[in-house]
């Protein structure tokens, strides 16, 4: 399977990438690691006529201490996250979940920014960023803006990013080295989660986020409320499927996904707190 033909533009800087997006309009698409976009193009589910390759913008590849937060360049690969000591110390949950994405080959190429911009509810890292209330920094023709994670994931494969914007940085709080657990349920090790549940405790509250339980990554607000009111992990986890709209597919029915959400949330809560 070979993608439909396209023109290829390699951006040497963020400015060049933005200029190419303005020049080519809706026909253009950014290419980072290509781990989500190229499979879609090979299936001809995506048919951009211009690809703007930002894969070599090494100045957007970093994990930095930003004082009260960590700043991560959008082009930072999953592999870089997995091996970052700063991340392990200051935001262990993001490091640990990055190591759960796909397989080594995928993690050598895929980027955090690509995973965020793709907006796939089956992706692991967007759920972590939602739980962490991350901030996304985007640059467009009219300058830079910041977007909160709560308003970012707007639909299936849809985000609040405009087509002419480049995601440049992801900011996460210093949530500490531990106090989290991610339960990912799949059938083959390299696959996406059929359902995933994340529990992370920091700043005195426990946050719970779900993967593959609707069109976007979701916060399990019912569980969070129950925990805040003093419920046990297992009672709180009983509310994990509240407000979700899981799809049915070859892997699972919607009812089975709801069941998984409750079970995985309970397990995640029990190991995050233990």
């Amino acid at each position: 399977m070979i993608p439909a033909g396209f023109d290829y533009v390699r951006a040497g800087s963020a400015e060049e990438a933005l200029a190419a997006l303005v020049e080519h309009g809706d026909d253009a698409k950014l290419l980072a690691g290509g781990m989500s976009l190229l499979p879609l193009m090979k299936l001809r589910l995506a048919v951009p006529t211009v690809l703007v390759d930002v894969g070599r913008l090494t100045d957007l590849t970093y994990v930095r201490d930003g004082g009260d937060h960590l700043a991560i360049g959008a082009l930072t690969r999953h592999r870089d996250l997995e091996t970052s000591e700063l991340l392990a110390r200051e935001c262990g949950v993001l490091r640990a979940v990055a190591a759960e994405v796909g397989d080594n080959q995928v993690r050598h190429r895929g980027t955090l920014g690509g995973s965020v911009a793709h907006g796939d509810p089956a992706s692991d890292l967007p759920a972590v960023l939602l739980a962490l209330d991350a901030t996304f920094v985007a640059r467009g023709p009219s300058g830079e803006r910041q977007l909160g994670a709560a308003d970012f994931f707007t639909g299936f494969l849809e985000t609040a990013l405009a087509p002419d914007e480049l995601l440049t940085e992801i900011r996460v709080p210093k949530a500490g080295a531990d106090g989290f657990a991610y339960e990912k349920f799949n059938r083959r090790a390299q696959d996406w989660a059929i359902v995933g549940a994340l529990a992370a405790t920091f700043d005195g509250t426990t946050r719970v986020a779900l993967v593959s339980m609707g069109a976007t990554p979701l916060r399990a607000r019912g569980v969070e409320e129950a925990l805040a009111a003093g419920a046990s992990a297992s009672d709180a986890a009983g509310r994990a499927a509240e407000g979700t709209e899981p799809s049915a597919d070859v892997n699972a029915t919607a009812e089975y996904r709801e069941h998984l959400a409750r079970v995985l949330t309970r397990r995640a809560l029990e190991s995050a707190v233990a």
Partner: peptide, 19 residues
């Protein structure tokens, strides 16, 4: 289809020659 690009494994069916 795994090959090494700059020493790291990649799936060469999911990477452009241009990359």
């Amino acid at each position: 289809c795994t090959v090494l690009v700059d020493g790291e494994s990649v799936k060469s069916c999911t990477m452009l020659g241009a990359q």
